[in-house]
Design a protein around this nucleic acid. Structure first.
Lengths: 109, 109
DNA sequence: CTAATGCATTAGTTAATGCTAATGTATTGG
DNA sequence: CCAATACATTAGCATTAACTAATGCATTAG
């Protein structure tokens, strides 16, 4: 059985381009502050904080306050519902498996 | 390079629970008509047609008119952008790889 | 031929959502 | 200390989006 609520949350959260860009940027960096995320994002700091809240609620990121700054990092488990969902319908992108296979070997040979 | 527009479309399309349910139902059946999709969907036939239009634009489904009925089927390639996106960030759900591995073997041993 | 069926489309309503601007609350630098 | 910095939160606004009801168009049944 698939966790409908979890997939729902993750999909909805990552559907917004701005928020997904924020997530991708967090993923790319080990840890990153709100100021850095705001810079070059095209939106205000308040908007970034709102997106971070959504990402946190979806379990996609975690925070680490340090002084007056807050460092954000990606939460790998958050993508699990999406992975599971894809897995459930895996038979329908069978032709993509070659790529995925090589990827798996590349990361964990 | 990641196809931002494609991921955007697929994510946005699958983010809606009703529409995703329609897609899942199309995936589960080989081919299915609009009447069947409407039955038990909780929404009107018009809504279903609208969702089908979105899914078609996202490249997730294809249609085959036959008489006054239209049969819909899943379009595997449509999920490619999502697979690619996941692959790009694969290093961050490394722990899910065991599951994915067994899945791969299950489908294509 | 005529009525019924299957589907698409449109207009209009309602709810959700992303944004800004402003404000509040800690924390640190000078 | 006190001003500045970092972040969160709120209210308000504009836009998007999902839905219904209604209508139109084609196709088949009787």
């Amino acid at each position: 059985m698939i966790e409908t609520a979890a997939i729902n949350a993750v999909m909805r959260t990552l559907a917004d381009p701005t928020r997904r860009a924020v997530f991708e940027r967090i993923v790319s960096s080990d840890e990153i502050t709100v100021v850095e995320l705001t810079r070059g994002s095209g939106v205000t700091q308040g908007a970034i904080s709102q997106h971070l809240k959504s990402l946190k609620l979806a379990g996609l990121v975690a925070e680490r306050p340090e002084g007056r700054r807050v460092f954000y990092r990606a939460e790998p488990e958050g993508l699990a519902p999406l992975v599971d969902w894809m897995g459930h319908y895996a038979v329908f992108w069978r032709e993509r498996f070659a790529n995925l296979r090589s990827l798996l070997k590349e990361i964990d040979p």
